[in-house]
């Protein structure tokens, strides 16, 4: 390989240095210049819009941030008019719901992605790919309906069982219910972080699954056949070839799902009954999330109350942005984004 220094001797048509690249000047027509200007303008416009979301939320939330100071991060209650407000409770609530959601979604997503890429063939494969995409397109309000009117009733006995036998783990403890009392009410197990997390888990599952399926199906054929040639079973091949090759995509896809789970609003809002203290008991009635807080209180009449909501929105925005940013870096490293050549 020849590396040509930019300050090298000028190319001489009949000399030995004729491989010095010719300087290329491009004379684009007027049409092309207009096209390029418009395209670049569109790119700038989108960048400005996206930047404005953050900037405006910060500007509007500055007043509340100034009043609350660092207490904004550590305070649990939400009484903006009394000057006593913070996002400690809602932020922890958001993370807990997202955590439950991810725990539900990951096994399902891995199972579905492996089934589509390794087990299903022919029409079944393409149908399942479409079904997963359809699952991502179902509106969140419909998952919320399903979660509130159906899943909640089914999950209460499960939640009671878990808290009875695993209540010694602080996360699964439930105050105010005596498992030995057969007449105890079930309402203490409703509207909990657990149920909201399961519903959100089903909602983010398709996103995780489609990223995973893509990286699984890109596992190199040579290594797959090598594993089979060495006598591996199908699961042995999956464990030694497909999963290690797909690790980046699995992590990235999970983080993408996490970002979506944290921002989910309406399904969570329909299920939980919002509380303004850190609720570490996943199975117990009462949960909180930043997005539900905004949906609940956006009608606040005072300027400070609105400003506080903007600050909470900014915190949610930054959180999802950071998570998703790292996720897309991980995912894009695990697959090539080059243009394909037929």
């Amino acid at each position: 390989m020849t590396i040509v220094a930019p300050s090298g001797p000028k190319g001489d048509l009949d000399g030995a240095d004729s491989d010095v690249p010719m300087a290329i000047t491009i004379n684009r027509g007027r049409q092309d210049n207009v096209f390029r200007t418009l395209a670049i303008t569109a790119g700038i416009v989108v960048l400005v819009i996206m930047g404005m979301v953050g900037v405006f939320l910060a500007l509007r939330g500055a007043q509340a941030l100034g009043v609350a100071g660092w207490g904004f991060i550590t305070t649990q209650s939400w009484e903006p008019d009394g000057g006593n407000f913070g996002i400690a409770a809602v932020l922890v609530g958001t993370l807990l719901i997202a955590l439950v959601a991810i725990c539900v979604a990951i096994p399902l997503a891995i199972g579905m992605a492996l089934f589509i890429s390794e087990y299903a063939r022919g029409w079944l494969k393409s149908t399942l790919v479409s079904l997963v995409d359809l699952m991502a397109a179902v509106p969140s309000v419909i998952y919320g309906l399903w979660g509130f009117f159906f899943l909640q009733g089914q999950m209460v006995p499960i939640a009671r069982w878990i808290s009875t036998y695993f209540g010694w783990i602080p996360l699964f403890a439930v105050d105010g219910d005596d498992p030995t009392d057969p007449l105890s009410t079930a309402t203490v197990y409703t509207s909990s972080t657990f149920i909201a997390g399961i519903v959100v888990g089903f909602m983010v599952m398709p996103i995780i699954s489609s990223v995973m399926r893509e990286v699984f199906s890109q596992a190199p054929v040579g290594e797959r056949e090598g594993a089979y040639a060495l006598g591996a079973t199908r699961w042995g091949m999956i464990r030694t070839v497909v999963l290690p090759f797909g690790r980046g995509g699995m992590i990235g896809g999970t983080m993408l799902g996490l970002g979506r789970a944290m921002g989910e609003t309406i399904a969570v809002f329909m299920i939980i009954s919002i509380v303004f203290y850190i609720q570490p008991h996943l199975l117990q009635n009462g949960a909180s999330s930043v997005s539900s807080l905004i949906a609940l209180r956006y009608g606040e009449s005072t300027a400070l109350g609105l400003s506080a909501l903007m600050a909470a929105g900014l915190a949610l925005f930054l959180l999802t942005l950071v998570v998703n940013f790292f996720a897309s870096i991980v995912v894009s490293r695990s697959r090539s984004g080059a243009s394909s050549d037929a």
Partner: peptide, 20 residues
């Protein structure tokens, strides 16, 4: 990169931005 990061923009934040 920015557009990819913004695909996770929570819809309520988009609503809040327009509201603000």
């Amino acid at each position: 990169t920015i557009v990819e990061a913004m695909t996770a923009l929570p819809s309520i934040v988009a609503g809040l931005f327009i509201y603000a």
